[in-house]
């Protein structure tokens, strides 16, 4: 069954207080934006979906992805790609090695290298394989982080205000790139933001929490 992400009577509580409570469906290839001021529990919601909720919170309800139940699965087994507002490239690995880190295991070293080179091409960074990620511009770093996540072949895309650190012209380009990749791969995409413009650009349903 290929029905995207479903949150069924999901609620997250901290001690006795309900922080987030919602029902949500994101179809494959569709984008839903969750909007709320800072502190409204947006990041907590994402942590619940990725399975990295801290033990201060309690989660009830049900999360399923393409018919698979995610509740109780360790983060490693969920096949969720997430982009944070910081690019979080590993500074000790080269640009290519950062991408290879995301690429699913298997394949020979040479085949992996070829895949990484192709991915570099896709994001307009040919010849950057051995470059130090620290030497990249903000936009280049963001593209590498996006590609690293896509190479892990996720079933779901989570965006945690990934555009908020970019300046205006770059922001438009990056949004376009992310949403193009997402719809081409028919990935259900959940965008969390406090920026109206991001949510409008996502051109999907908008949920406020």
């Amino acid at each position: 069954m290929d029905d995207g992400l479903r949150l069924t009577s999901l609620s997250i509580r901290q001690s006795d207080q309900i922080l987030v409570s919602l029902d949500l469906h994101v179809a494959p290839g569709a984008t839903v934006s969750v909007m709320g001021a800072s502190g409204s529990g947006k990041s907590t919601l994402l942590a619940a979906i990725t399975g990295q909720l801290s033990s201060d919170f309690t989660l009830s309800g049900h999360i399923s992805l393409n018919g698979r139940s995610l509740t109780g699965l360790p983060p490693q087994a969920r096949r969720i790609g997430i982009l944070y507002q910081d690019h979080l490239l590993f500074p000790h690995l080269g640009v290519g090695a950062n991408l290879a880190f995301g690429l699913r295991p298997g394949l020979s070293r040479r085949a992996r290298r070829a895949q990484v080179e192709k991915a570099l091409c896709d994001i307009g960074l040919e010849g950057f394989h051995d470059r130090d990620p620290q030497s990249l511009s903000g936009g280049q770093k963001a593209r590498v982080a996006l590609m690293r996540m896509l190479l892990s072949d996720p079933d779901l895309l989570l965006l945690d205000e990934p555009f908020s650190r970019l300046d205006a012209p770059l922001r438009v380009k990056m949004r376009e790139l992310v949403f193009t990749f997402a719809s081409r791969r028919r990935l259900p995409t959940l965008l969390v933001t406090h920026d109206e413009e991001d949510a409008r650009a996502a051109a999907g349903e908008i949920v406020r929490i």
Binding site: T50, G51, Q76, G81, I82, F101
Partner: peptide, 28 residues
Amino acid sequence: IDSDGRRKVAAALGYGRIAGWVFTVLPA
């Protein structure tokens, strides 16, 4: 060092806790 961020990314990419930590946090 930002070990939390590194760990989160590695876990989201499907790495086990130990492998993710050894590959991303230990080198720093």
